[in-house]
Design a protein around this nucleic acid. Structure first.
Lengths: 326, 326
DNA sequence: TAAGAAATCGATTGCGCAATCGTTTTCTTA
DNA sequence: TAAGAAAACGATTGCGCAATCGATTTCTTA
């Protein structure tokens, strides 16, 4: 910058003002400065700028696994919105590991990010509150912490579980298996609660042996479905905690020569893009992934820019996308 | 840091040395400093540190679309390795848009990232060389620029195309459709070249009407496959430029009541995780995605740390994973 | 015990920039 | 044409830190 100033015969101040358009500069000098910048191939150092203005135009995003289509879809929309707003995003994968989540959060804070998006993290309330106390804007995505003064955006998972199960019941299914995700994650447990509710409303007893825990990955859907189908009295339908496990389950059925939905109906959750293209196409619960990603980053950025905003918890509606797997 | 120093009754220098373990400090003072850091809840400011040491421990990663399983898988492995090495990664989605790629590259440079990973970017040689001239370490992933002094890691796409086509020929197919990706991307065009070569080696003429261009997404696989199957003399097998399009193609076949592989054989490319769980499981060309991600980030970080390294282009082997779709 | 060696610590500078508090020049208008 | 208003620019400081150069204190050992 000093070089540019010298080359243009002005002060550093003026160069700064030309760059940031922060006060009027005569056309003549501005041209000279711009010319010097060009001639010297000057690249502003945003690091120094950030140190000075205490803003990095960077946000951190912690997700369990960015290679999981559900998260990668959300992450994509988040990145999109941030780009539009002039923010960069630092990607952090936690694998659901609490230590890793905490470690990442600290790195982000030390790197002076302007805000952090926690997507489905399991961090304890204590830790989250500690972070919040650092006065760094925080946004919880797909995670619920009741009665806490924190912004959050999540989908109505309970209703999703209910919708899926209700749908299967309406089609005459009475023994409905359920492959859950990790029970300590609210979205996952909420889906199971919805499943319970629907069964109870129809006076169908809950058979605990029909509820198996998976890990949201393809393989576990495959394995758990095989377990269910190996039972003496196998279920006639399976509600899976997410689409990935549902796809695994469909393969398990396919591998046994079972026909979907005639022999076994399958319903997923998330409605990831691929759900429309499985054989047969997968009935699933549509989460507004785009809205989830965009709204959360939008709210975070708003909070960054205007500090005095009311805390709000946003619950997004889910929907049942009926396809041929049920 | 000044506060910590004051609280511990030492100089800022000593605090710095305690933090970075950059020179010996007596156990007593170290304890006092650590105590002060704890008492004051001190968080080092990595921004200031970076400004001083001219290293940000951050790398930029530009990918076309991080919600595409192929890229998200690579990106995940990149992030993993970088985490292990103490680097953060800034995620950039270019959508294959050259302007966006260039814009992102500039932002990354201004943010003083220590290096940039270009995953399948289409940036002109000029632009890439210009960036390289800025003395910022660059790594090309899944992109080839022959005769240029740049590090790169990519898979043997041509051989992959050959393997897939050869496999279909061996199974007696003579009319083999091909759904390509964008022809201006080397990985895509190389795959088609492999397809050509295999056909020629077996003296099977090349019917240009059997070669359709897609865009690497599910929908285009579905659409192009339907086009092929609508032909008077439809192909008996389809080689798809990537798994996503292959899954779209499988759905197109399924939608018509065609049986895979009896009525139509399908082969994909990439071997994304889901390929093992389609119905039937998808034959595909395995790219060493993990190796691709890890090796590229490893090499980049090595280049960052030791500047005098020979430039190298790494070509990774691909493999044919035979499953039931062919 | 003296004097050099080793251990331990501090004052200060500058990384590249934005912004505060100025100064100087040019324009108005009576 | 003088004097105030407005326009245009500059010197300097400090953001938080690492690192250089240096000072002081505490061992050693003959």
């Amino acid at each position: 910058m000093r070089d540019v100033a010298k080359h243009a015969g002005v002060s550093v101040s003026t160069v700064s003002h030309v760059i940031n358009e922060t006060r009027h500069v005569s056309t003549d000098t501005r041209q000279r400065v711009l010319g010097a910048m060009d001639a010297l191939n000057y690249q502003p150092n945003r690091l120094a700028r950030s140190l000075r203005v205490k803003k990095t135009q960077t946000i951190g995003m912690i997700v369990p696994d960015s290679s999981n289509p559900f998260f990668s879809e959300i992450a994509r929309h988040i990145e999109d919105y941030c780009f539009e707003q002039g923010y960069s995003v630092i990607l952090c994968n936690s694998d659901g590991d609490l230590d890793k989540e905490l470690f990442y959060a600290n790195v982000l804070v030390e790197k002076q990010v302007d805000g952090i998006l926690f997507v489905a993290v399991g961090l304890s309330e204590d830790n989250i509150l500690k972070l919040n106390a650092q006065r760094i804007p925080i946004m919880l995505v797909d995670r619920q912490i009741p009665n806490l003064p924190l912004d959050s955006v999540l989908a109505d998972n309970r209703r999703g579980g209910w919708l899926a199960t209700q749908h299967l019941i309406e089609h005459g299914h009475k023994r409905i298996g359920c492959i859950t995700g990790f029970s300590d994650l609210t979205p996952s447990s909420e889906r199971v609660i919805g499943y319970h509710q629907a069964l109870e409303e129809h006076n169908l007893g809950i058979d605990e042996t029909l509820i198996l825990q998976g890990d949201f990955h393809l393989q576990s859907g495959y394995d758990r479905a095989n377990q269910l189908l190996d039972m003496n009295q196998p279920p006639t339908a399976i509600f899976c905690g997410n689409d990935l496990m549902a796809i695994g389950a469909m393969r398990a059925a396919g591998g046994r020569g079972l026909r979907i939905p005639d022999d076994i109906a399958i319903v997923g959750f998330d409605d990831i893009p691929i759900a429309q293209f499985t054989n047969p196409p997968l009935t699933s619960i549509t989460q507004p992934l785009k809205k989830l990603g965009r709204l959360s980053s939008q709210l975070l950025i708003e909070r960054i820019q205007k500090k005095d905003l009311d805390v709000a918890q946003h619950m997004l509606e889910v929907d049942l996308a009926i396809r041929q797997s049920s």
